[in-house]
């Protein structure tokens, strides 16, 4: 129960950061994705099970505020991201800072690609979104992610209980 509370608190922080902080630090309309950040964080630190659950929860929350026809698309996308990133859980392998940041980048593009496929976007639109949004926002997130992985990540408890 306490474990769930901690994750919920992490998630609320990410949610507030995404809705309040992200618009403030926007550069030329480009802002980082704190929620994806949160999923990658918990999946790497606590494993695929946690990554899958919070990926689904965060994606579903995103779905609620989006077009009703695609309800479930972001939930499905972030569930996939949480599961795949969770396979690299640090309990099973030792990851350096560069690998963690690279995994964040992979998760970012995987997220956009799976979402594009799920919602049946045309190839032209996916390419356009990739160039104008995914790429710059992915790089922005990676820069912030590198700092967070270096300073914040080691301070998180290895096992929340």
């Amino acid at each position: 129960m306490i474990k769930a509370f901690w994750f919920l608190l992490f998630y609320v922080v990410a949610f507030v950061a995404q809705t309040v902080l992200a618009p403030m630090i926007e550069v030329f309309g480009i802002s980082p994705d704190f929620i994806l950040f949160f999923i990658v964080f918990v999946a790497l630190r606590y494993g695929a099970l946690v990554g899958v659950f919070w990926g689904f929860f965060a994606g579903f929350t995103e779905d609620i505020y989006s077009d009703i026809h695609w309800l479930g698309a972001a939930a499905l996308t972030k569930t996939v991201v949480g599961f795949i990133v969770g396979q690299f859980e640090e309990k099973f392998m030792n990851l350096g800072l560069v690998t963690k940041v690279a995994l964040l980048g992979v998760a970012f593009f995987l997220n956009d690609a799976v979402y594009g496929i799920t919602t049946g976007m045309s190839r032209e639109l996916v390419t356009k979104i990739f160039l104008t949004k995914s790429l710059p926002e992915g790089l922005y997130t990676l820069v912030l992610g590198a700092f967070a992985f270096h300073f914040l990540y080691p301070r998180l408890p290895r096992h929340v209980s």
Partner: peptide, 29 residues
């Protein structure tokens, strides 16, 4: 299976929601 069961469960749930009728989606939302 390192979260495989949970993954299949939540993947199925998301897929189910995504392919449900508009009325059901409205209710869920």
């Amino acid at each position: 299976g390192r979260g495989l069961f949970a993954f299949l469960l939540f993947f199925g749930l998301s897929y189910g929601i995504l392919h449900s009728s508009l009325k059901e989606k409205m209710w869920v939302a």
